[in-house]
Design a protein around this nucleic acid. Sequence first.
DNA 1: AATTTATATAACCTTTTTGTTATGGAAGAA
DNA 2: TTCTTCCATAACAAAAAGGTTATATAAATT
Lengths: 123, 123
Amino acid sequence: MEENGYTHQQPDLDIIFGALADPTRRAILSRLATGQASVNELAAPFQMSQPAVSRHLKVLEKAGLIQREVDEQRRPARLRADNMALAVNWLDEFRAFWGTSFDRLDDVLVDLQSKPTEEQNHE
Amino acid sequence: MEENGYTHQQPDLDIIFGALADPTRRAILSRLATGQASVNELAAPFQMSQPAVSRHLKVLEKAGLIQREVDEQRRPARLRADNMALAVNWLDEFRAFWGTSFDRLDDVLVDLQSKPTEEQNHE
DNA sequence: AATTTATATAACCTTTTTGTTATGGAAGAA
DNA sequence: TTCTTCCATAACAAAAAGGTTATATAAATT
């Protein structure tokens, strides 16, 4: 079980962060934050093929970031955000490093919001 | 410039989440949260070769998650957490989905802390 | 000057990721 | 029933990731 001195593995985080590392998948998640959507709807904005999007959805599903449903012929996806909290929770350990009370993180966030990107303002 | 209907790319997040998707690199970051360390010190807990660790460090550096320094022959790494805030900031957009005021996220976090893992409690 | 220590880089291999096209199946429409 | 729509899966190729060993380099030590 033990594989090194200071940590065990947490495979969920591999899968979750891995899923978040792709711009298409992040865009899909952003889209789903506005409500569920069918595969074709999700695929439309991309120049990618439909099977490619289907596989991205499978990656997101394995990461527990979405869940699939059934609506006649459609298999709409809907957000399932619990596992994103897992990611946030891991990042959270670094708040102690950033400062006792979020100060530095807050600074950075304020800074980011003053020059927002399109991706951040997806809605 | 425009590549699809609802988002632009944010390559930083690809790199950052990609860097966080590997358990060795997360363990290195956790170690660095307790203070700077040389390459050999970082490599010691793993059964991996030193060149492999050097490459993990390069990935982390490219992601802006660490910075390298010079101490005689050593090239110690130190945490540079600003870009982790970028990741948190992106995830932040889903707090609206979780609930108006963090409620659901808080629930999940409380839940996680009641059954913590080794990796979460690295210090 | 020669050796040792700390680290980086090169060359290579294997596995995983990410896309493609082709095809199949299930459900609704005609 | 036949056609169309929506989606998944298979087979394939290219590129990226992650490891290895061998070697180079720079600084400290002897």
